[in-house]
């Protein structure tokens, strides 16, 4: 009985990401014979192009692992979590978690957080535009009303907190910054794209706390109070100014202006 085209394509696709080397039935070369080499062209295109897409999205991880190791890791990931839609700049949301829990990489526990930072960078790069006017707007706000101010956080702004020095690792492996001895200890990183360039800044835990509060829509006064209860000596002025400098706080929202 002839097979339906649906069955033919299902069999073809099922063999594309398998690790054995089965050729689907009904596929032949010019002599009418089954040809391993010919089907391998498709399998190779699929695995190579999707690995290359992951390398484009996670270049620091590729640099840290080397091209060969990265390719092998990426192929494992592709087999387990192939993309489910055709926009490859959106492929790899689960890759940081995959890296984090890949047993052979257990001795490199910072890799997962570096991958998370690369993913956030990618989202910022392709994220929505919004003009950054908050610093200018704040100058117009009367002093006694500053506590009421809320902010519209930039749509591309995100933070990553790690117990590892991921900011330095990211800078050295993406921007070609000179490698310096990295002090131990964790780092908080803020990522935002206020214009054409993605800004990646290391910021204090207090600053990240304020960012998360303001992102939730909390007023500046309430966020400052929460900050003081979390961090003795919380300095609202310096935290606010570093958030404004990066462009993470895009616009001031006032209840009645």
């Amino acid at each position: 009985m002839p097979r339906s085209a649906e069955q033919v394509l299902a069999s073809f696709s099922g063999n594309l990401t398998r690790s054995d080397f089965l050729v689907p039935t009904g596929l032949v070369g010019r002599d009418g014979e089954t040809s391993q080499r010919r089907f391998e062209v498709y399998r190779n295109n699929v695995l190579s192009s999707l690995s290359a897409a992951l390398a484009a999205n996670f270049p620091a991880i590729q640099r840290l692992l080397g091209e060969e190791y990265f390719k092998a890791l990426a192929v494992e990931f592709v087999r387990q979590s192939p993309p489910t839609q055709p926009v490859l700049s959106e492929y790899g949301a689960d890759f940081p978690e995959f890296v984090r829990s890949f047993p052979p990489l257990a001795d490199y526990p910072y890799l997962g957080d570096v991958a998370s930072l690369e993913w956030v960078w990618l989202k910022a790069y392709h994220g929505a535009e919004l003009a950054v006017t908050a610093a200018e707007q704040l100058k117009e706000v009367a002093g006694e009303r500053l506590n009421e101010v809320r902010f519209k956080v930039h749509p591309t702004a995100s933070s990553v907190i790690s117990q590892f020095p991921i900011y330095e690792i990211f800078k050295v492996n993406r921007d070609g910054a000179a490698a310096t001895p990295v002090a131990g200890g964790g780092q908080g990183v803020l990522v935002v794209r206020p214009g054409m360039h993605v800004v990646v800044e290391q910021v204090s835990p207090e600053t990240l706390f304020l960012f998360e509060q303001l992102k939730q829509g909390v007023s500046l006064g309430a966020a400052a109070e929460a900050g003081l209860s979390q961090f003795p000596g919380f300095d609202l002025g310096s935290c606010l100014s570093s958030l404004l400098q990066t462009g993470a706080l895009a616009q001031v929202l006032m209840a009645d202006t």
């Binding site: 085209a5 033919v8 696709s13 498709y42 897409a53 993309p83 489910t84 839609q85 055709p86 490859l88």
Partner: peptide, 14 residues
């Protein structure tokens, strides 16, 4: 594409 995967290659059909 063949649900649920996208293969990023232009694959042939009968």
């Amino acid at each position: 594409s063949h649900q649920p995967a996208y293969y990023n290659d232009l694959l042939p059909l009968p």
